[in-house]
Design a protein around this nucleic acid. Sequence first.
DNA 1: CTGTTAGCGCATTCAT
DNA 2: ATGAATGCGCTAACAG
Lengths: 342, 342
Amino acid sequence: MPERTGSNKQPTIREVALRAGVSPMTVSRTLSGGESVRPDVQEKVLRAVRELGYHRNENARSLRPGHRSGLIGVAITNLGNPYYGNFALGVEEVAAQHGRRIIIGSTGEDPLRERQLVSDFIGRQVEGLVLVPSGESVDHLSADRLGGVPLVLASRSLEGLDVDSVLLDDVGGAADGTRVLLDAGHTRIAFLGNARSVFTGERRFEGYVRALAERGLSPRDELVERGQQDVASAEVATRRLLDLEHPPTAIFSANNRNTIGALREMGRRLRAGESVDAMPALAGFDAFELAELMPVPVTIIDHDPQELGRQAARLLLARLDVDRAAGHGKTIEMPVRIVAAN
Amino acid sequence: MPERTGSNKQPTIREVALRAGVSPMTVSRTLSGGESVRPDVQEKVLRAVRELGYHRNENARSLRPGHRSGLIGVAITNLGNPYYGNFALGVEEVAAQHGRRIIIGSTGEDPLRERQLVSDFIGRQVEGLVLVPSGESVDHLSADRLGGVPLVLASRSLEGLDVDSVLLDDVGGAADGTRVLLDAGHTRIAFLGNARSVFTGERRFEGYVRALAERGLSPRDELVERGQQDVASAEVATRRLLDLEHPPTAIFSANNRNTIGALREMGRRLRAGESVDAMPALAGFDAFELAELMPVPVTIIDHDPQELGRQAARLLLARLDVDRAAGHGKTIEMPVRIVAAN
DNA sequence: CTGTTAGCGCATTCAT
DNA sequence: ATGAATGCGCTAACAG
């Protein structure tokens, strides 16, 4: 049982040494594996460690030359979004396998907060950074500003930055999803998506347009709703679409939030007595639970955020543990899977 | 534009001082607000800081006596679970308001991993800990072992530990939810829940039993399925229930994972042609998206994980910033809300 | 207003 | 096998 009840300062290596009747160095050696320390002395030291509830001060350790902090900084847009939660989980999983801990911050899509987070992370001596960027600005992310700390971008890319990135096949996935709707005979296909400034939103719109073009169609302004970042506004956008004189017979949704919003609006109408047959078919990015119970046909463009996180972490750790300056930034584009949910 | 291209070591305060032609102290003072430094000198210093891409080494700072690390350790069971993601978001939000950063680890319900995480956090000089405990063991969480670092438990409590806790009204919520089913005329009500060892699982079962008892009923062994921690096993358990000779006419589910599992199994049966009328009604803990679109009546025992996180952080920060030894551990029990989803 | 000294906790280097 | 000296980056406390 530890003692020192009452105090709230961590014991130091010196106090342990004192208690064990040895020098601080002997304690240090014992704690680093016990090379060149007599077993009985190690015993004494470890007992003192237990008795005092001693933990090595990692911050002090990381001050020593050559020592690494064991920290990876992760900045994502929103921890509460299960997509990014799973992404972070993937990063953490791989980081842990390599003896690293992650330190997380949510940017809330705010570029200023992103700058502060990154700066703080550097100040805490992170060995590397994983970032889902929120803006287009790049100057705070240059290799110099980061003091040479390796950076990996995930989900979204940035122009003018030579770093490793992990992206999804946004364009291809969106085109494939749209084609499913076209193949089902739809020609009035609406688009629901993020703000234009969001990298993935732009790419997914491009895929949608491309698939339409293949069939000689082009996007109609009144059927394109961009700029919804949350479920509530996606619901409103869907309402507007369905209230059109000639409503779309299908909707392509660029992400989870928009898909859920569209379905909620449809649910509202169904409960209000509208016919299922009046509801549009749906295809959209990102899987969600219980999709198989939806009352309208739903096609999912599925992918694994956790795997995205793992890949990002792998790229980063390759720079850390294998080859710091492994040439130019690599970009990995992860495949997606088209799934009929119901 | 920063220089030092190529090097990957962070510049130190000394290098900045050299470049600005001042002493390290002047740099330090400038960076801490600029008291007692001539404006033109500050100018020079800040320019050097920019040019070198300098960031203060927080680890070295936190070594100084009296200085605090600004880190809160958060250990949850699973970052990928949106419930805990939102919880962490709530903690982060309040922590950020008080100038703290969070460092996160997932325990995966593994007590050993929890020990390691907590130990690592202490080693990194966290000012406080927020923990969703995974086991029943307590010895690694005593005030002594934590070196006096304040701890707040969330969601689950532990016997024999005098610390602040934030819990839900598990018993009352489960009783209320069960009563909704009883009021609808059901008497064969099944229970789906976690392993007995999970604190919330036990409490929610207690609420279920209590509500039954009020109507002179008692739980029937064949209608109680405990031990499902994920959707897949909840599906299997539901299948077993529905295959009984006298299947339950309603199900009470103790958490999100079990609710989703039950619904998936029902969806399977519906797609296989079974009648909606043959499906049990459902009441369960934890909200989930699109509940309003479910084909059977669903009652939700709703609560806000993010608010749970905020409360946990507030309790912790009160100890940190207001009164470290604010008497015995407080337990806050957060209310829940019964909602008819559809 | 600015600089010097000293020490936070630890581990590498060099004695013993 | 063990210990003493030294310095990592930073900033109170004390000169000047």
